[in-house]
């Protein structure tokens, strides 16, 4: 991992308070895999100590520039508070403190493996990256849901992922089918035994996915969130209770995670 100031090369506002941020950093891009995140700095514009801590943001995509090596790192960010609002004001040419790539990644699927992605809201980011990396070589499907069409910021970009199957669901029916993203899953998994499921989104959604995969022949990986101080394993601020063998331990989301096996998560914990 590297911590450096890199230039912002593009900023696009999407609907519903989401934006796409792109930075140029060949050294970091060379290391990025689906599931990785970065800690993005707050000290651009004028130097200020407030807000203070870097914000954890997943990698949405990593693309080559005019040469062939990866160089551009893309993020999809939802305006959620002061820090993300500050990030939304970045413009091409600004410098941004980028620390990463950090954390664990979604496992590289074996060639014959069927991959099912289940995402909610901004949780689509690491799954989009999985699709971009592996859709050409793997049989993959995406289930993507939110309350309403404005909660599916990447909808318009999904065709360029090369996914064969994209199932959109909204609770109000404003895009795709009406319903929760988990509703079609039991049937789908039953007819696709042995699949790997990668999920990222609100905890309640991932918990529902875990309950479904527990009863079928499927392996689940989830990407977890928590407040973070350092992102590199030093502050112990980001821990969650994680089941390891027959014990539950306080485990760092930034280091041992954010990607965990579904059955390692104690969903009963509320925090």
């Amino acid at each position: 991992m590297l911590c450096m100031e890199v230039p912002v090369t593009d900023m696009q506002h999407v609907n519903g308070g989401y934006f796409l941020l792109q930075v140029h950093s060949p050294a970091q891009a060379a290391l990025v895999r689906p599931g990785h995140f970065f800690m993005l700095g707050m000290q651009h514009a004028d130097f200020s100590a407030d807000p203070l801590l870097n914000r954890p943001i997943s990698v949405l995509d990593c693309t080559p520039d005019d040469h062939t090596a990866p160089a551009a790192i893309h993020f999809l960010i939802k305006e959620a508070g002061r820090g993300t609002r500050l990030l939304s004001r970045l413009r091409a040419g600004d410098n941004l403190l980028c620390h990463g790539p950090l954390g664990t990644t979604f496992p590289e699927p074996s060639p014959e493996c069927r991959l099912i992605l289940v995402g909610g809201g901004v949780g689509i980011a690491p799954l989009y990256f999985c699709a971009r990396r592996w859709s050409a070589t793997h049989d993959m499907a995406l289930f993507y849901g939110g309350r309403s069409v404005t909660d599916l910021p990447l909808q318009g970009l999904l065709p360029q992922t090369g996914l064969r199957e994209v199932i959109l669901l909204t609770e109000d029916g404003s895009a795709g089918r009406r319903g929760l993203v988990t509703e079609p899953l039991p049937e789908y998994l039953a007819s696709n035994p042995g699949a790997k499921v990668y999920s990222c989104g609100p905890n309640a959604m991932m918990e529902a996915v875990a309950r479904i995969t527990a009863h079928v022949d499927a392996q689940l990986w989830v990407s977890m969130e928590n407040r973070m101080g350092c992102g590199l394993g030093a502050c112990l601020g980001c821990v969650l209770p994680v089941i390891e063998g027959d014990k539950t331990a306080m485990v760092r989301i930034c280091k041992e995670g954010p990607v965990f096996r579904g059955e390692q998560i104690d969903w009963k914990i509320r925090y």
Partner: peptide, 14 residues
Amino acid sequence: GNAPPRIYETAAGM
């Protein structure tokens, strides 16, 4: 250690 959440950002501090 303690249960989460363990950190909270405040004005120019945590």
